[in-house]
């Protein structure tokens, strides 16, 4: 399908704007950690829908299996036991791509069309354009993209862009037994989150809150947390994530400036040659040899 048929807000390594005239609703996934029972139905459903099979690893003394996001596991339940808030708590967080409004991966990617941000907010990897350089891994503030050993392409949660494109909800959200995962327009999700936060505050979680970090322009995957003031409790969910300044510098103004500088250096040489002219050694210099 050509570009027009899909509403793309941003395309990696493309300095000209993509077709984005239409205003479509922005979708969002809400992960309500307070309702999550860590059952990994989302991990199963994600692997099954996307035809992925993870390697059977070993148990390192944790419920988090596999141990980390991989090219085969695009979402992962991270378990953390803490007694910081008085009683024992088992904080379980569904890790995966946050689909940022200002995606670090897309900013870092050098290959045109490898990373696409649709108007509905989904940030999707198009592996056929991915060259496997891994810049996006450096660009992402949440350490999500994973390089596959088999084909050196980078993979991450696509928020089931194929299902959402035909109007279905993502596979993990449909599977979630306790409605810890909810899908809909971003406004609805924020509204739903506020209701949940009100209920949580009644149950004694004063710091319950919504995790929608402004540092990356807000995300299309948001959390409702018991302790929104200490997100690092949840297996170090970044407190206020931003695209790292190093990457900002590297991919920011330095790029066009350096390109121009190189071009002008070459041009300066040519202009110098044309004006000052070459530096020759005349014949008589030959003769004057003693």
């Amino acid at each position: 399908m050509a570009l027009q048929s899909l509403d793309i807000v941003r395309r990696s390594a493309t300095t000209t704007p993509s077709p984005q005239q239409r205003q479509t609703t922005e979708v969002a996934k809400l992960i309500d950690v307070t309702k999550c029972i860590g059952c990994k139905a989302c991990q199963s459903a994600c692997m099954e829908w996307n035809d992925l099979r993870e390697e059977v690893g070993i148990n390192e003394g944790s419920y988090t299996n596999p141990h980390d996001l991989t090219a085969n596991s695009w979402t992962l339940m991270r378990f953390a036991e803490t007694e910081e808030n008085g009683t024992l708590e088992w904080l379980i967080r569904k890790d995966g791509c946050m689909h940022c409004a200002d995606p670090g991966c897309l900013k870092a990617c050098p290959s045109p069309g490898a990373i696409i941000q649709y108007a509905n907010g989904i940030v999707d990897f198009h592996e056929e354009n991915c060259i496997g350089c891994g810049y996006c891994i450096a660009g992402c503030p949440f350490d999500i993209p994973r390089l596959s050993e088999k084909d050196s392409k980078v993979y991450k949660c696509t928020l089931c862009s194929d299902r959402v494109a035909v109007g279905l909800e993502p596979a993990c959200i449909k599977a979630c037994p306790t409605q810890a995962l909810v899908f809909g327009s971003k406004e609805d999700m924020i509204e739903h989150a506020n209701e949940r936060i009100a209920d949580l505050k009644e149950r004694g979680f004063e710091n319950a809150g919504l995790y929608d970090p402004p540092g990356v322009g807000g995300t299309h995957v948001m959390y409702v947390l018991h302790h929104a003031d200490k997100p690092e409790l949840y297996n170090d969910l970044p407190k206020d994530p931003v695209i790292s300044p190093t990457v900002g510098l590297w991919k920011g103004i330095f790029k066009p400036l350096a390109t121009a500088a190189i071009f002008f250096t070459a041009l300066a040489g040519f202009f110098h040659y044309v004006t000052v002219g070459p530096n020759e050694t005349e014949e008589e210099d030959e003769e004057k040899k003693p």
């Binding site: 692997m47 099979r53 993870e54 059977v56 690893g57 070993i58 148990n59």
Partner: peptide
């Protein structure tokens, strides 16, 4: 099942 095995791969 190859989908469930990695979720709890080893006896503990």
């Amino acid at each position: 099942s190859k989908i469930n095995a990695p979720l709890q791969p080893e006896q503990f």
